[in-house]
């Protein structure tokens, strides 16, 4: 379990990370989302003890990173943004070095073989890292983080520079690792985060601006849900019938197409499902529904909304995971 409390990092007068708090449970995959320069890497560097925090604490399974750095660091596998690899070594030699550096107490050769197999670099083991492609270097960095089976994995943009096939493989790997490990990984690619993570923290200008389960996030941002409809029949009847449904906040009429079909957008309260009510209301007035879609904002909309000028804290009305 990772517990981050009131973590702050100042560089002179600039607050790179501003009072961040969150908890990650064992076996959870947490996505760290934010635009460039939001403070993702700084936060990760503080969690792993690479840099110290100005104030605040990071506790991993009960040990604090600044008070007991040795024991805490042993529990973390870290893949920084730029993989920390020595380009003059062979893959195997490098992993052996990292194995010794991390003071891992597992059978050395078997463990390194296993990790290399897991990230798919077994056939590259005797190549000098200098000669490897970016994707393979990234995997070597990944392998290094997995050495010693640490309970917590911190991955800073692990899929950057990989080809689509490799990205899918790495995502699968992260998902499978999430069963045994606690994983925190950062990205600015939204689809990646939503495909892999149980929970998302959105960070912008050093502050957490959203913290929710992946599927709850977009509703938690807007605070209401939307339904896009295409209904045949008189718009006046339709609007008045829908307005009678209790959870509906507002209905707006869109363009009328041929055949007397009109588009509508219905906004209704969060946590309610009005689709059945809409169906029975329309059947009562004899107006057939031709199309019905949940008009939830996509993660992209949400992300842009969150990270744009508006800096309201959405965590309060968001479902905290």
């Amino acid at each position: 379990m990772v517990e981050v409390k009131n973590l702050t990092k100042c560089y002179g007068n600039i607050k790179a990370v501003d009072d961040i708090s969150f908890t990650v449970e064992t076996g959870e995959v947490l996505g760290f989302l934010g635009p460039n320069g939001a403070g993702k890497s700084t936060t990760m560097n503080m969690i792993t003890g690479y840099i110290s925090s100005t104030s605040g604490t990071v506790t991993i399974d009960g040990s604090e990173i600044l008070e007991d750095p040795k024991a805490t660091k042993q529990k973390i596998g870290y893949l920084p943004e730029i993989p920390p690899i020595y380009v003059d070594m062979t893959v195997k030699k490098y992993l052996e070095f990292m194995f010794d550096l991390k003071k891992v107490k597992l059978p050395k050769n078997e463990h390194i073989e296993e990790v290399m197999r897991l990230v798919g670099i077994s056939d590259q083991s005797n190549r000098i890292i200098k000669n490897l492609s970016k994707g393979y270097r990234q995997r070597v960095g990944f392998a290094q983080a997995l050495l010693g089976n640490p309970p917590v994995l911190i991955l800073d943009e692990p899929t950057v520079g990989l080809d689509p096939k490799q990205i899918i493989e790495i995502r699968k790997l992260i998902k499978s690792l999430g069963k045994k490990h606690t994983v925190i990984f950062s990205s600015h690619v939204l689809s990646e985060i939503s495909a892999t993570c149980d929970r998302i923290i959105v960070i912008s200008n050093g502050k957490i601006i959203a913290d929710a389960k992946t599927n709850e996030l977009s509703t938690s941002v807007s605070g209401e849900q939307k339904l896009a409809l295409q209904i045949e029949g008189s718009p006046t009847d339709v609007v008045s019938a829908i307005k009678k449904i209790p959870a509906v906040i507002r209905i707006s009429k869109g363009q009328t197409m041929s055949n007397n079909v009109t588009k509508y957008m219905v906004e209704y309260e969060k946590g309610v499902d009005i689709r059945r009510d809409v169906f029975s209301a329309m059947s009562r007035i004899g107006c057939p529904i031709l199309d019905m879609q949940s008009g939830n904002e996509t993660l992209e909309d949400m992300f842009l909304k969150l990270t744009s000028a508006d800096q309201t804290n959405y965590t309060k009305n968001g479902g905290k995971g």
């Binding site: 920084p80 730029i82 920390p84 991390k102």
Partner: peptide, 14 residues
């Protein structure tokens, strides 16, 4: 320069 110090400083080695 090569950022390999991230591996050194985040390892349990003092």
């Amino acid at each position: 320069h090569q950022k390999t110090d991230q591996a050194l400083l985040t390892s349990p080695t003092s």
